[in-house]
Design a binder for these strands. Structure first.
Lengths: 205, 205
DNA sequence: AAATATAAATGAACAGTGTTCAATAATCCA
DNA sequence: TGGATTATTGAACACTGTTCATTTATATTT
């Protein structure tokens, strides 16, 4: 029967409609302005309709967070053509940093906010596939570095986590306005300079 | 006139009363349960009274955040008896990490949440004294390490920021449930192991 | 084509949030 | 004691996420 097929497609279309409206509000006005009522108004549907297609707000935010990982993943994939693993690792960090600086709200949603993780828990899924996949790229990259003789005396998993933590920490402190708050000498160039320090650190034999 | 003095003291007492109630709710039930109405109920005053003593909720959360820095500062000060700056630096990180693990909500308020920084901005204070003072402890410590010949080829400020970022990043990812999410081999011992990796990293000549 | 069954959309209602402010109560001082 | 000052109140406002009986629209069957 072709009717149910068409219906399923229409359902997907409205889901996309809602998500696009949510994303539009998110990008243009920030996370605070992403409310169910504003989304409904944007797509010219009623509030109740939103709840027909999404179980709750966390569901919507989780979907947006997944979209964010899509973009970050795409930016990271470009670095596949960098053959030297150590160079690729350094470039990976730069891409990650740039993504966070360019999309602070999205980064916050992906790596800080409770909503996406709360949604997973409410679905009884303890697997955070987006995060796992992204971390896996880093993990495999570090593994190749170790194979080439770098990071002697280090353990793969904890080391990868520390590297992630370092770059994430920089992004997080920047986005939460804490970098600005400590009044460093040169706030604008600080992120770049700091990343250079990080590179120097991991380059040591 | 002694009456106005007493009045000023009484005002301070009620401010403390409100803050203690806020902290009680914060520690016991988490940040979501810190509402003006719950605070008012706790101290058996009306909602309006809270707004006589605090300009808004951000004001209260900023005060709590300052208390948190008091505790963290106290824990850090204990390490003054460690003479070797490099050893002190490593211990500093451990104290910082422990504080975050023991008081995740408070850490979140101090280093992640918008409320305290929004309050500063609303008061037209661009100085984040609590953060500056804490970062200064790290900065001075790293300076001593450099003086002793460590961290050759590094710049003091960016390096200190990277060190802060690394430990903060670990705390942040842990608190936001992202560490749990990536499903590492040994989630419980990960934080400790990762910090060991960090120590190994900064110990390299 | 009409009647029935299914699915989709609605929006008022509920319980909660931070914040304000005219009205009330309490205190102080002359 | 009476007037001025200060403290306290709580209803009201504009929001928030979420639910659900009711209505509208579509699809299927007679």
């Amino acid at each position: 029967m072709g009717t149910s097929e068409r219906k399923a497609k229409e359902k997907e279309e409205i889901k996309t409609l809602i998500l696009n409206a949510a994303k539009k509000l998110f990008v243009k006005k920030g996370i605070d302005q992403v409310t169910i009522r504003k989304i409904a108004e944007e797509i010219e549907y009623s509030v109740g309709t939103v709840y027909v297609y999404f179980r709750d707000k966390n569901d919507i935010l989780h979907e947006l967070h997944t979209q964010g990982f899509g973009h970050l993943g795409g930016a990271m994939r470009i670095l596949n053509n960098v053959s030297d693993p150590m160079e690729r690792l350094k470039a990976l960090g730069r891409v990650y940093l740039q993504f966070a600086m360019d999309n602070p709200d999205m980064y916050d949603l992906m790596f800080n906010m409770k909503a996406p993780m709360d949604f997973l828990e409410s679905m009884h899924k303890e697997e955070w596939n987006e995060g796992k996949a992204t971390f896996d790229v880093l993990l495999k990259n570090v593994a190749q570095c170790i194979q080439k003789g770098h990071f002697e005396g280090h353990q793969l998993e904890p080391l990868s986590f520390v590297i992630w933590s370092t770059v994430h920490g920089m992004c997080s402190l920047h986005i939460s306005q804490r970098v600005k708050g400590v009044n460093l000498e040169n706030p604008d160039s600080m992120m770049g300079k700091a990343y250079e320090e990080f590179v120097t650190l991991i380059d040591k034999k």
